[in-house]
Computed example of a mutant assay.
Amino acid sequence: MSSESEHAARGRIGGVIVAWVGSVVIGLLIALLTPVGQRAAWLTVGVAGCLVLSFAVQLWSGRAEGFISRVALSMLGSFIVLGLFGLSFGLAALA
Rank of each mutant, 00 (worst) to 15 (best):
S23D: 02
G62M: 05
S5R: 02
R70G: 05
H7L: 14
L32Y: 13
T44C: 01
A40D: 03
S78T: 10
F79H: 09
L91P: 04
L94D: 00
S23H: 06
V21W: 05
C50K: 01
S23T: 04
S23I: 04
F67S: 14
A56P: 02
I80L: 15
E4V: 06
Q38D: 03
V81K: 09
V25L: 13
V25C: 07
L53T: 00
L29I: 06
R10H: 12
P35F: 13
E65Y: 05
L53N: 04
S78Y: 02
V18K: 15
A93H: 15
V47Q: 04
V25W: 08
Q38C: 02
R39F: 01
G62S: 09
E4L: 03
I80G: 10
L73A: 05
I80V: 15
G62Y: 04
L43M: 09
G62E: 07
I17C: 08
V18S: 13
A48M: 04
G66L: 07
G77Y: 03
A19V: 11
A64K: 00
E4P: 02
V16H: 07
W60I: 07
L73H: 00
I26A: 14
A41S: 03
S2I: 13
G14P: 03
R70H: 06
V71H: 10
L59K: 15
L82C: 04
L82F: 03
G86F: 06
A92T: 13
R12E: 14
A95E: 07
G86Q: 13
C50M: 02
L43A: 05
L53E: 01
S3N: 05
A93D: 10
S54A: 12
G77L: 06
G86K: 14
G15T: 14
W60Y: 10
L32S: 15
G77F: 04
I68L: 15
S3Y: 02
S5A: 00
I26H: 06
A41I: 01
I80A: 14
R10W: 10
L43V: 07
W42Y: 11
L91T: 15
F85G: 13
L87F: 10
L73I: 02
E65S: 12
A56W: 04
E6I: 13
